[in-house]
Structures are given as structure tokens and as C-alpha cells.
């Protein structure tokens, strides 16, 4: 049992492939995909900002799959790390899971700097579009990561639970610090401030459980 520090088998991954669905970016901008044709000049900005936006994204993730050592009503502990989850919601999510993956992902600081540049130049529309694009990019990267993990687990007969992040349900946002420490997320440049806000801004921490699948006869 490791008392603290970084989980030994934590894996750092860079160069995650992803695709940002335009309809989702539009939704964040409160525009339905069907109205895209009515956006006029905004549509051009959308094209150019999203196309240029990719160069500011450098997705990197760190994740570790650990055994669930104990899952009580409100507390979950894992093998190989002192990190514990205190949340009824997460406990019920991981109830029948033998393993869980802790993950932290960021698309990097460059895109946030670019958003600030836009704001400083008074180009609010571009700032807003790039902000929406970067948020969706982070989501898309996590989805891709989960799909890859899911494929590996599926071959060994395990199915995923939903992905769950600190700040949702009763899992306090301050759990982010523990997740980052357990994963050694500093290695991908990810940290958290006193108010539990992640830096870089476009980042995600989460846990996902893996339950053994009962094989049919």
C-alpha cells in the first residue's frame, strides 16, 4: 500500500486524436444546427476560428486504473493510493466495480491565452466561439480516451459506468486536488488553485468504473 504520492501505473498520454462536432459548438453558442445557414458573417468567423483553433490545442491526459479496495456508502478507497472519494453518488456508481480509472485531461494553456488575446483586442465574437470550441474539444478528448479504455476493458469482459467529475452531484469540487495529486498531473502541466479551479482552464478530471460482466452460458 502506498501512503501518498503518485499512483505507480499512472499513464501519461499525449497526442490524443479528437474531433469537435460543429453542432455541439453551435449549441454552446445557443444556436441550433439548423440555423447555421442564417448566421451570416458569424458563420465565416466560426469556420476560421474553429479551423485555426486546433493549432492552440495540445491535449494531454494522465490516467490510472486501480482496484477498488473498499466501497462503502459514502467512501471509496483504492489499492495503491491514499486518495479516497467521499461521495454517495460516486460510491453508488462504483458499487459493483472491481476497478476504476482516475483521469485528468487538459487541452493546454495556449487556447486560453488566445481567447484572452481576442478579448483584449475587443473581438468578443471570436473569443466566444473559440471558448466554446475549446470546451467541446476537451469533452471530445475525454470521450475518445474513455472509448479507448472501454475497448481494452471490453476485451477482458468489463463494462464502463458513466463518467463522473468532481463538482457534480455530491462529489465536492475540492476533490480535484486529490485526483491531480494521485495522478501526478503536474506532469501534463495541470494544477488547481485555492478556489479549486483548474489551470489550464480547459481541463477535466473524472472517474469511471469498470464492472465485471457476467458471461452468459
Amino acid at each position: 500500500m502506498v501512503a501518498g504520492g503518485v499512483i505507480q501505473n499512472a499513464v501519461v498520454e499525449g497526442g490524443i486524436e479528437f474531433e469537435v462536432l460543429r453542432a455541439l459548438v453551435l449549441r454552446r453558442l445557443q444556436v441550433s444546427a439548423r440555423d447555421e445557414g442564417r448566421l451570416g458573417k458569424v458563420r465565416e468567423l466560426l469556420d476560421s476560428v474553429c479551423a485555426a483553433g486546433r493549432q492552440y490545442l495540445a491535449p494531454a491526459a494522465v490516467h490510472a486504473t486501480v482496484d477498488v479496495a473498499h466501497c462503502g456508502d459514502i467512501e471509496v478507497s483504492f489499492t495503491g493510493t491514499a486518495f479516497r472519494v467521499l461521495s454517495r453518488d460516486v460510491a453508488s456508481l462504483l458499487r459493483s466495480c472491481g476497478e476504476a480509472t482516475l483521469m485528468a485531461l487538459t487541452v493546454g494553456p495556449a487556447v486560453t491565452r488566445e481567447i484572452e488575446h481576442f478579448m483584449a483586442a475587443g473581438r468578443m465574437t471570436e473569443a466566444m466561439i473559440l471558448d466554446a470550441f475549446a470546451s467541446e474539444a476537451a469533452e471530445a478528448c475525454v470521450e475518445r480516451l474513455c472509448a479507448a479504455l472501454g475497448g481494452r476493458h471490453a476485451r477482458e469482459g468489463r463494462a464502463p459506468t458513466r463518467r463522473f467529475s468532481p463538482g457534480y452531484g455530491d462529489w465536492a469540487l475540492d476533490a480535484q486536488r486529490g485526483v491531480l495529486e494521485a495522478l501526478g498531473a503536474g506532469r501534463i502541466g495541470l494544477s488547481v488553485n485555492e478556489q479549486n479551479i483548474l489551470a489550464p482552464e480547459k481541463s477535466i478530471t473524472a472517474v469511471i468504473g469498470w464492472k465485471e460482466f457476467v458471461q452468459s452460458a
Binding site: 453558442l29 445557443q30 444556436v31 442564417r38 448566421l39 451570416g40 466560426l46 468578443m124 465574437t125 466561439i129
Partner: peptide, 9 residues
């Protein structure tokens, strides 16, 4: 739509 309103602003 919202982004158009911002652009007009």
C-alpha cells in the same frame, strides 16, 4: 442569434 448579436455589438 447570440453570436450575431455580439458581432453587431
Amino acid at each position: 442569434f447570440l453570436p450575431q448579436m455580439i458581432l453587431a455589438s
